[in-house]
Write a protein that binds this DNA or RNA. Sequence first.
DNA 1: CCTCGGATCAGCT
DNA 2: GCTGATCCGAGGA
Length: 229
Amino acid sequence: MGIRSWTAARSSEGRLRRAFFDRPATGLARALLGARLRVAGPNGARTARLVEVEAYLRGDPASHAYRGRTRRNRSMFRSPGTLYVYRIHQVVCANLVARRGEAVLLRAAAIEGDGDPREGRGPGRLCRALGITIADDGATVVGPGRFVVYGPARSPRVVRRGPRIGIRRAAERPLRFWLEGEPSVSRPRRTTASASPTRSRDGGRYPRSRTRSRPSSGGGRRGGRTAGR
DNA sequence: CCTCGGATCAGCT
DNA sequence: GCTGATCCGAGGA
């Protein structure tokens, strides 16, 4: 289901509404690139422009929701626009819930305002830079609260896609999306963290589909269907 | 209960 | 490039 009307999905100030998030995570991931996440805190607000995201889908073995609902992943089954924050090792990572059971991992952002924009490099650092903690799990960005997401500027941008990072299952699926030329984006990884060093199967080349998003041609996604599965 | 390993990151070779 | 930190959730016994 596509977004029927973009004006219905954004407020006049560009704030994204629930309808914007209520769709498959792949499309939401792409659409979120360039969007701004604003987090209010005791010392004022910080805003970050999203430059790298990953989609986690229904029936996706890499998704935390794959084996059904548990205490940890319950936020993934809440309404679109909910934050799903989980802990890994010593850090937390944040997702935005798409349609039920799907989510978009926020992998990297350019931090705006004071400080180093690269503080938002990587999902753990992104959360740290914005002050997102495990206590924010289950919060929403489409209602009252400390979180707001503003839609991407309607300016040209080049979206690239490739395999997700740091996962073992379904690692080949090209569900990571990023903006070309952004310094906060994760460096391409050549070898998947695997026990076998010499085991590179496709030579590290994946089909990069480039999608141009233009100011007023909202729906014009073009060709670039890659060898996804 | 116990074991396993991770949607990471910093630091080292 | 590779390893360890560090700890909790998930899943099996």
